[in-house]
């Protein structure tokens, strides 16, 4: 029981710490943008995967859009 409480407390602290890191606003100088320039910090992270996902979910769900405009076609059985 003690272990579970310790683990839960640890997870809570980690979650709070992450949320705090995300929401803390700060000025970012041009020379501090190395992390933000990485591909996995872009929208979308992987254009090829994103492009394929859009086709799959456009074809299989009733809702679409929200990320960009353009493209086209159906392929929607």
């Amino acid at each position: 029981m003690h272990k579970i409480i310790t683990i839960l407390a640890g997870l809570l602290i980690t979650a709070c710490s992450t949320v705090s890191n995300i929401t803390t606003s700060e000025d970012v100088k041009p020379w501090e943008k190395d992390i933000l320039a990485q591909q996995d910090m872009q929208f979308p992270q992987d254009p090829m995967f994103s492009y394929s996902d859009e086709h799959i979910y456009f074809s299989k769900e009733a809702s679409t859009g929200g990320n960009s405009v353009g493209g086209g076609g159906c392929g929607c059985n």
Binding site: N21, I22, V28, E32, V69
Partner: peptide, 18 residues
């Protein structure tokens, strides 16, 4: 006709939101 309006904001050195 599709229209999109968006804003991308650098929150801090490790966080970006759209």
């Amino acid at each position: 006709t599709d229209i999109i309006a968006g804003v991308t904001h650098v929150i801090n050195r490790r966080t970006v939101a759209q």
